[in-house]
Design a protein around this nucleic acid. Structure first.
Lengths: 315, 315
DNA sequence: ATATCCATGCACAATAGGTGCATGATTGAT
DNA sequence: ATCAATCATGCACCTATTGTGCATGGATAT
């Protein structure tokens, strides 16, 4: 399972460790056991003749040398990805495994068709799809568990757009809609503005979650401070809360309302049209790989189809 | 023994194969058995999902993809060497193994003191010295069997000065002297010119050898075509031939005459003062490594000392 | 003081990866 | 045309790397 890389897997492990800081978390991300991670890092130090880790309290911490090595390895990894991509391209070769990662609705609406398409066109390609939140998707890319991730762009998160480890491609902007109880005075409207809903009790996710930052960003853009009344983790829960009349919420258009009772979805009008940007991310250098290129193409088509299927987007 | 590299060792094996063309030779150079090389290359193709080799007669041959990958891997390797060197430098770490390679007189006069010096200053460093001819030294560098080679620069050979895999540093120019039988009419002279010896029967190495090209280069420089009477492989043999009055020869100043009877060594005068250039070669990127730097320093000192010990050099 | 969390060492198990020999295919020489 | 030489590869076997699971020990927070 762990033989897909040309760079020493122990260095990959070190990179994951540099990201998450503890041996246990590294083990979880890489799929090894904690003992294995510990042994790998010890071996790596022995082979390289470098001290990469120091005890720090009850954990371990990277030394300056370790940090240096990890940072420097960014270019090494992308160099390899580049080379592999070019070689695949030059010789129209087929790779055997392909890992995809994505988050909930993105995974459902974009990744599933992609995986199906790849399966049919490349019968002997082992496609694996992992559902994971955006932050974890980046970690999984670093850990080489997946090769492509479809995620919601996070502006203020730890992985910037210019991270030397990744390359990102915008797929589509998924507008946020308002969901109201059917009994709400504004429920019969076609559109609403956030200002009109400024005093409503809002339902959102817990602070620190992926969508919470989107939520606050939407309101700060129009200069309104919403009152957060309830918190939900799943869309379904949030919809149920709204249906029960507990408050109102924001729901990405890609998230299906199914046939929820007592809930209506309204597009947002006005200058601040909040949206979540959905992007595809790959390891830097791998973007020219034929499989990646094909996948991105399929994703773009899916994204375009999604936008076309919803002609009211330009409201 | 073979765990010193951060790049997949199978890729290194492929690179060596690209150099020598047969599985057997690759096995000999890398230190594996032929079966192991075969299995490694098969595995590499499986893991990468690329066809790198094709059957060609009774052997195998690189495909276009294979060649592409090998060429592209040059920068990858040097990138890694660079990174490792920088990390070692940044954290004044010590590496555990260090392989040196060199050829006969160079090995004796430059490598041995270097190895001794490194041994004393780095007690727990495993220094290994391999005697090998220049071409093989380059192969051993590619195969990662050695880290530094002291060789005689070859102008027209397969490894040019600008090979992307190596970096070379000039250590010294070792002048070629003439050795004559003591009974020779010119034996009492202080110096001679090649023109004066144009009609002599010459003793040299077999065509195609390292020094044969030096030999011919020396004469073409002064526009003389020597008559090659005898061939010898070892310096000792050549000296014995000269001592027996069979002819005259060229001998690098670094090659000791010991106390050979009936043989005198004369410096060459005139415009064409032939010399063999002795250089140190390392894998590209590794030259900033502390150990390499220290070694090069020691070598330079040795080279300077050698030149000073022979004050007649500027004749 | 006690509970908890984290890394690590150890016994054991799996497996990747090695060698040596036999085999088959191809080329060149007698 | 036969035979020898050369080369790659498959197979049986073995080794040693590298994994897991559990127990241990140090460090912190309650």
């Amino acid at each position: 399972m762990h033989n897909r890389c040309m760079i020493d897997p122990r260095l990959i492990t070190l990179r994951v460790f540099a990201r998450c800081g503890t041996v246990g978390a590294t083990a979880e991300l890489t799929g090894y056991s904690p003992s294995a991670v510990s042994a790998q890092l010890r071996e790596l130090q022995r082979v390289l003749g470098m001290q990469l880790l120091t005890k720090d309290g009850r954990g371990v911490r990277l030394t300056a040398t370790g940090r240096f090595l990890v940072e420097g390895s960014d270019t090494l990894i992308s160099e390899w990805e580049s080379l592999r991509a070019a070689a695949m391209e030059a010789g129209d070769q087929v790779q055997s495994r392909f890992g995809l990662g994505g988050f909930s609705t993105a995974a459902a609406q974009l990744l599933a068709p992609l995986a199906a398409s790849l399966r049919s066109t490349h019968p002997l390609l082992q496609v694996q799809v992992l559902e994971a939140n955006p932050a974890r998707c980046f970690d999984l890319l670093v850990a080489e568990r997946i090769d492509l991730a479809v995620i919601v762009a996070m502006q203020s998160d730890s992985y910037g757009e210019d991270d030397p480890r990744f390359e990102q491609t915008v797929l589509l902007d998924d507008p946020l809609d308002v969901i109201l109880p059917a009994s709400h005075p504004l429920a019969s409207r076609k559109t609403v503005t956030l200002e009109e809903l400024a005093t409503e009790p809002w339902i959102t996710e817990a602070a620190g979650s992926t969508y919470h930052s989107l939520f606050t960003a939407a309101f700060t853009a129009v200069g309104v401070t919403p009152r957060i009344a309830h918190e939900a983790v799943e869309w379904e829960t949030q919809i149920a809360f709204v249906g029960a009349g507990l408050g109102v919420g924001l729901l990405p258009r890609l998230a299906p309302l199914h046939n929820a009772e007592n809930v209506v979805r309204l597009h947002i009008a006005g200058k601040g049209k909040p949206a979540r940007r959905i992007v595809a991310a790959v390891r830097r250098g791998s973007i020219t790989s034929p499989l990646i290129q094909e996948s991105l193409g399929i994703l773009q088509v899916s994204a375009a189809r999604i936008l076309n299927d919803r002609p009211k987007d330009d409201l």
